[in-house]
Design a protein around this nucleic acid. Structure first.
Length: 392
RNA sequence: GGCCCGGUGGCAGAGUGGUCAUGCAGAGGACUGCAAAUCCUCGUACGUCGGUUCGAUUCCGGCCCGGGCCUCCA
C-alpha cells in the first residue's frame, strides 16, 4: 500500500498562494505523481488511501491514545506525550538527551514535554477542518500514516519504506503512536530507508535552482534508463544525477538489449531455472547493483553461448532477471532502433549496400554505410544478415 | 553544537580480514572486405595518520572531507 497525505499545512499554504481549491492542487499533484511512477516502471500498489478520506479513523486512534494517557488535550491541540513511550528514539538512535542538546526550535508553551508532538490541531474558519471531540480541526503530524496502515495492513506489518530524511521525526512518531495505540512492541518489522538524489554533487533544492523533475528527465530519455541508473546504486546510498550518469546508464542498458537482440534466433526456454545471480542479490537486502552485475554476467554467457538450448535458457534467465528489476521490458529491436518511421528507407539502402557488397563494389557499400552513419545509424553485418540501430 | 551515514581504480558502483565484483571509458589482441557488435587480455583502487593482527581496503581510534537529521515539514 502507498499512503497519500493530501492535507497538511504546506498544501494549505500552496493552494492559497495559487488561489485554487486544495483538492484541485492535490488532484493535479497526485495525477502527475502517477504518471511519473508509471513511466519509471513502478508497480501500482493494491491500495492507495488518502488522508482526507480517513479522518474518522485518525480521530478514533487519537481517542484511544488519550484514553491510554499517552496523549492529552491542550489549547485545542492534542499532543502525544513522548516520555510515555520509553523506547522512543530507538529507530533513529536518538536519546532524549541528544534531542534536548540539539534542540534549536522554540518549544510551544502548551507542551508538557519539549519532545511532545501534535496529533490534532485546531483549524481557523478558512482552513480545512473536520469536527472532532476537540473542536473543528485537522490531523497533526503523522497520524494519517499510522491510522491508514493499521486499517489496511494491521499492526505490526512487515516492511515500511521511506526516505532517509523521514527517520526522524516522522517514522519515530508513527512508531510511538502505533505501538501505544495497539499495544505492540513493533510497528513495522523492517524499515527500508532510501538515500537521496543529488544533482551534480549538490542537494536538489529550489533555492539552488538545480531542481530536476522526473518529467524533465523523461523528456530526454526512456524511463527505463532512469530506472536502470537508480537501481545501479544500493537503495540506501545517495545517488548523484548528471547527464553523464544518464549516458552511462544508457550505455549499460544498451548492452543488455544488444545481447537480447543477438538472441533473436531462439525462443526463451520455458524450463530455465531462476537466474540466481539476480535473485540471490535481491534476497540480500535488495542489492540491486549486484543484481544488475548478475544480468551482465548472464549477458556475457549468452554472448559466448553457441548451443541453441543454452541460448534459449540464457534468454529466459536474462528476461526473468530483468523482469524482477522492472528492466528489459521493451522489444530489443525497438529499443535499439527507436523511431522506425524511416525503417523502409533504411532497409532499402541496406539492400542496395548488400547487393554492392555481393558485387564486390566496396566503394559504393562504404558510401552507404557513411551516409547512414551521418544520420546516426550504425549497420552491423552479422551471420544472419545486416541489422541496424541508432547510436547514442 | 548534538546524533547518524559515507569517502573504493579515469567515471559509476558492489564487496571482503589473506583468489574475481560488474558496467562505462581507455589500451592491446581475435574476428571482420571495411565497420560495428562480440570475445580474450590489461591497468600497482580502496581519504589520512596510528593501533590490533602472521596479514587490513575490510576491525578499533584520531584527523580531514562530503552528506543527512536535530520536533507542529510530510
Amino acid at each position: 500500500m502507498r499512503n497519500i497525505t493530501d492535507i497538511d499545512d504546506k498544501i494549505i499554504d500552496q493552494a492559497k498562494a495559487n488561489g485554487e481549491p486544495i483538492t484541485e492542487l492535490t488532484e493535479r499533484t497526485i495525477e502527475r505523481f502517477h504518471q511519473d511512477t508509471a513511466a519509471l516502471g513502478c508497480l501500482e500498489p493494491d491500495v492507495e488511501p488518502r488522508a482526507t478520506e480517513h479522518v474518522p479513523l485518525m480521530i478514533r486512534m487519537i481517542e484511544t491514545l488519550i484514553r491510554q494517557s499517552v496523549a492529552y488535550e491542550a489549547e485545542g491541540h492534542v499532543l502525544f506525550h513522548v516520555p510515555a513511550m520509553p523506547s522512543y528514539g530507538r529507530l533513529s538512535g536518538r536519546s532524549r538527551d541528544d534531542q534536548i542538546a540539539g534542540a534549536r526550535v522554540e518549544v510551544a508553551p502548551y507542551k508538557r514535554d519539549a519532545a511532545d508532538f501534535v496529533l490534532w490541531k485546531p483549524s481557523t474558519a478558512e482552513q480545512p477542518g473536520w469536527d472532532s471531540p476537540w473542536g473543528r480541526g485537522r490531523p497533526g503530524w503523522h497520524i494519517e500514516c499510522s491510522a491508514m496502515s493499521a486499517h489496511y495492513l494491521g499492526v505490526p506489518f512487515d516492511i515500511h519504506g521511506g526516505g532517509i530524511d523521514l527517520v526522524f521525526p516522522h517514522h519515530e512518531n508513527e512508531i510511538a503512536q502505533s505501538c501505544c495505540a495497539h499495544g505492540t512492541a513493533d510497528f513495522a518489522r523492517y524499515w527500508l530507508h532510501n538515500g537521496f538524489i543529488t544533482v551534480d554533487g549538490e542537494k536538489m533544492s529550489k533555492s539552488l535552482g538545480n531542481f530536476v523533475t522526473v518529467a524533465d528527465v523523461l523528456d530526454e530519455l526512456p524511463g527505463e534508463v532512469f530506472r536502470f541508473w537508480m537501481l545501479g546504486a544500493h537503495y540506501r546510498q545517495p545517488l548523484d544525477y548528471s547527464e553523464g550518469a544518464m549516458a552511462q546508464a544508457k550505455a549499460g542498458l544498451d548492452r543488455l538489449y544488444r545481447t537480447l537482440e543477438n538472441l533473436d534466433d531462439v525462443a526463451a526456454s520455458d524450463q530455465a531455472p531462476p537466474p540466481m545471480e539476480v535473485v540471490g542479490a535481491l534476497l540480500d537486502d535488495l542489492n540491486t547493483p549486484r543484481a544488475i552485475a548478475g544480468l551482465h554476467l548472464l549477458a556475457n554467457e549468452a554472448n559466448k553461448a553457441t548451443r541453441p538450448q543454452e541460448r534459449a535458457r540464457l534468454k529466459r534467465q536474462l528476461l526473468d532477471g530483468g523482469r524482477l528489476l522492472g528492466l528489459l521490458t521493451q522489444d530489443p529491436r525497438q529499443w535499439l532502433q527507436g523511431d522506425t518511421t524511416d525503417a523502409q528507407a533504411i532497409q532499402a539502402l541496406i539492400d542496395e549496400r548488400n547487393a554492392a557488397r555481393a558485387a564486390r563494389n566496396f566503394a559504393r557499400a562504404d558510401a552507404i554505410r557513411d551516409e547512414l552513419k551521418a544520420k546516426g545509424i550504425v549497420l552491423e553485418d552479422g551471420p544472419q544478415g545486416t541489422t541496424w540501430r541508432r547510436e547514442g
